[in-house]
């Protein structure tokens, strides 16, 4: 086919395009990720006493932290879905979240004895928390990668990692509805580890399937 013919066919195919297609679809993915994680979480592990949770500042600390990582991932994904875009402020948001939580964790640990420090770091669920978050993120990861294939990421692995961070943050926020751990250090280590699992899975999968 000659290039001019191809252009004629494409002009014929020029329907009005959707505006803000990328952020809109990614927001849908966020909602789907949260719903899917919730649908798995409730019958599997159940919710904690939410009346008690919302009165507890540590619940909000965890929620704001995981939501910040999710937001950072969203912003990164939104940029990296486009050819030639730089990563922008998403990385800054995620990094700021980590630094703030690290500062809180240090402040909390400073006044504790070494036995208490170990209890604050490990809680009672450190060995299951990351895996559970990773598992809860899995449906969202599939969804976000499928959506990303419609877009045009030119750095496949990085775009996949950003997508994994995005849905990992959402899934970890949902996991906070179950988990009653309270220390900042626990959140910093094990929630972050769970989100990192999702990020790494996203990078590996993205590297494989986000080329076009």
């Amino acid at each position: 086919m000659k290039t001019d013919d191809l252009i004629a066919v494409m002009a014929n195919d020029a329907k009005p395009a959707a505006r803000f297609a990328i952020p809109r679809r990614l927001l849908l993915v966020a909602a789907a990720t949260a719903l899917a994680a919730l649908a798995v979480l409730v019958p599997w592990l159940g919710l904690r006493d939410m009346g008690q949770a919302v009165a507890d500042s540590s619940y909000w600390m965890k929620t704001v932290y995981t939501a910040a990582l999710g937001l950072g991932g969203f912003l990164l994904t939104e940029r990296l879905a486009r050819p030639g875009s730089r990563s922008g402020r998403g990385a800054f948001v995620a990094l700021a979240g980590i630094l703030v939580l690290a500062a809180i964790a240090v402040a909390q640990l400073a006044s504790l004895s070494s036995a208490e420090i170990s209890a604050a770091l490990l809680g009672s669920t450190w060995d299951t928390c990351p895996w559970r978050i990773g598992l809860l993120a899995l449906p969202g990861l599939l969804a976000v990668l499928l959506v990303m294939r419609r877009f045009a990421p030119t750095r496949a692995a990085l775009a996949g990692a950003a997508a994994g961070l995005f849905v990992g943050g959402v899934a970890a926020t949902v996991y906070g509805l179950h988990c009653a751990e309270t220390s900042a250090a626990f959140t910093l280590f094990w929630y972050t580890a769970g989100i990192a699992l999702s990020t790494i899975a996203g990078a590996l999968a993205g590297w494989r399937i986000l080329r076009w």
């Binding site: 086919m1 290039t3 191809l6 252009i7 494409m10 195919d13 020029a14 395009a17 959707a18 297609a21 990328i22 879905a81 486009r82 050819p83 875009s85 877009f151 045009a152 076009w212």
Partner: peptide, 17 residues
Amino acid sequence: LVQETLLAIHLKRETWD
């Protein structure tokens, strides 16, 4: 390559900011 790029410009046009 010209054709491939034009196809991408057309099919991926939603990704232009």
